[in-house]
């Protein structure tokens, strides 16, 4: 890989990183901080990464996910006394403006996605939103392609089940 340039190589990844961080943390402000940390961290390590990392995008996504998981763990450790089983309580992914713009059904689907376990959420995010291949997802998440496929299968089955309930009963 050639020398990394911040503006042309790293900055264009910000939206993709933000969406992944948001999918994990479910908090816009936190996701934005994570993207900034990711970009700065990779930038500081650029000298050692040149020639070692095949895909800068995959590497950044991995760093971003790890940072997001760290933050989530720390947050959960701080809030042990609170019941944190549901992700709904921390669901600040949509700004007030967007909340108004999204109609009720899309908000319900959003909740379906947010209720998945973190690994399934990340896989669905990388596959269905970012359109990545199993191989790319496996690289980012440090899993085998087979595990990625099984995880995606479970996530989609779960979404289907809930989705059809919404369709049938408007739940």
């Amino acid at each position: 890989m050639q020398e990394i340039d911040f503006r042309t190589d790293l900055l264009p990844l910000k939206d993709q990183l933000f969406r992944l961080a948001l999918r994990i943390t479910l908090d816009r402000a936190e996701a934005e901080d994570i993207v900034q940390d990711t970009l700065l961290r990779v930038w500081e390590r650029r000298a050692e990464l040149s020639g070692v990392v095949n895909s800068l995008e995959a590497y950044c996504l991995t760093v971003c996910r790890n940072l997001a998981l760290d933050r989530k763990e720390r947050k959960e450790a701080q809030n042990l006394s609170l019941e944190s089983g549901s992700y709904d309580a921390a669901d600040n992914t949509l700004s007030p403006q967007e909340q108004l713009e999204h109609d009720d059904r899309l908000r319900r689907i959003h909740r379906l996605f947010c209720q998945l376990p973190e690994r399934q959420r990340s896989v669905v995010q990388l596959r269905d939103i970012e359109g990545k291949s199993y191989k790319e997802i496996a690289t980012v998440l440090g899993l085998t392609e087979e595990v990625v496929k099984v995880t995606l299968f479970r996530a989609r089955q779960s979404i289907r089940q809930q989705y059809e309930k919404i369709e049938a009963y408007g739940l």
Partner: peptide, 15 residues
Amino acid sequence: IGLGSDFDRKVLAAV
């Protein structure tokens, strides 16, 4: 969904 130009300014100032 993405980040705006405010983010670019902030992160570029750090870099």
